[in-house]
């Protein structure tokens, strides 16, 4: 079994790690996701340093990291680059969210290795819809990959 296969087994698609230093915003995200995806297990990190090391040290990896990239002093980008610098974390999907729609900011996040870019609007319902769209996409995508690997096509209900 090669390294990639070993790592594949450690990814738990039902886990999501939310990197959000603001307790209030973290609460908002928890409210949104607990309603749209009650079957997912949410974990929160309020400090952005050492995220990649923390992921590597855990027995399983979350399927998705939801990262507030709009952190002071470009720390969000640093977290993104740190995660993407570890080959063992390549199967972790990183969805960044930010209150900016600037094309420059989008390009910069994609170059740093983000899998999805979600605009965070002020309106809660709209933000919840956007987060749901991103998580649904990556959950469906993971299901399709699993389906093609084992010959079936599981569809979570």
């Amino acid at each position: 079994m090669n390294e990639v296969q070993q790592h594949h087994q450690r990814v738990d698609r039902r886990r999501i790690l939310v990197v959000e230093p603001s307790a209030e915003d973290a609460k908002t995200i928890e409210q949104a996701l607990s309603r749209t995806h009650p079957h997912l297990r949410l974990e929160f990190a309020s400090r952005e340093d050492g995220i990649a090391e923390r992921l590597l040290a855990a027995p399983t990896l979350p399927g998705l990291v939801l990262l507030n990239v709009h952190l002071p002093e470009h720390q969000g980008h640093a977290v993104l680059r740190a995660i993407r610098s570890h080959p063992h974390l390549s199967e972790v999907t990183v969805v960044v969210f930010t209150p900016s729609t600037s094309p420059t900011e989008v390009d910069s996040c994609y170059q740093a290795g983000a899998d999805s870019y979600v605009y965070k609007p002020v309106n809660f319902a709209l933000f919840r819809t956007a987060l749901k769209g991103a998580i649904d996409y990556w959950q469906d995508s993971a299901s399709r990959i699993r389906g093609s690997l084992d010959g079936s096509c599981p569809t979570p209900r």
Partner: peptide, 17 residues
């Protein structure tokens, strides 16, 4: 052009993929 790029970014994934 920049405005339309921003609108497209706002719409994904809130409206569509």
């Amino acid at each position: 052009e920049e405005t339309l790029q921003r609108v497209a970014r706002l719409a994904v994934p809130a409206v569509a993929e």
